[in-house]
Amino acid sequence: MSKDIPQEAVTSKSAGLAKVVSDKSLAVLVEKLPNEMIPERDLWPGIERAIGQKSQESQVGQQRNTFVPGAWAASIALVVLLSWFTFSPDIKDNSGAALVNAQGDSGITQGQLVNFMQQSFKQQKQTLLASYGQPTTDKLPVAMQQELKQLADARASIKKALLTDENNVDLLNLLDFTQQQELKLLQQLYRQYQVI
């Protein structure tokens, strides 16, 4: 275990007695050093926890690695669709339906499409309201307020149903129809009442 220590000695005069520690004595002490020491606390639980976490991380990492190309492809498809939707004047009025039709070809998931439709709807609604000077609906007749609320509720219900029902094109179309109706209603209400 230890190396040979060359013969040297350090002497010290203490109480008139010459004390010597030679390399040999030191080598003997080194040889006597225990190979093992016992830690005070149990180290295994901490190690077990850490390696458990590392294993989980590596599994997640592997899943991520397989998911990443798919996610990239879906993102690119989404960006292409978004650009098409934004810059093509022909489909502006019927954007949701166009997306629904295009879904089958693009390879994006229904969940991604629903989210995109929701965001798109919010943006359109926000733009519409902004163009009318950010009005509030409080001043509308109660019946109109209720109709708007019913449409919003219907939209939420369809979205909820879409989360559990994969690849339901009818529901997607219904969501798109509901969103468009809500936008049209808001537009009509502004024109009719000029109050909101």
Partner: peptide, 21 residues
């Protein structure tokens, strides 16, 4: 090594050679 030897002496270490002497 030198520091260890000094330290051992200062702490009253008695080496084998010393005991033999």
């Amino acid at each position: 090594k030198s520091l260890l030897k000094e330290s051992l002496i200062a702490n009253g270490f008695v080496s084998i050679e010393e005991e033999i002497n």
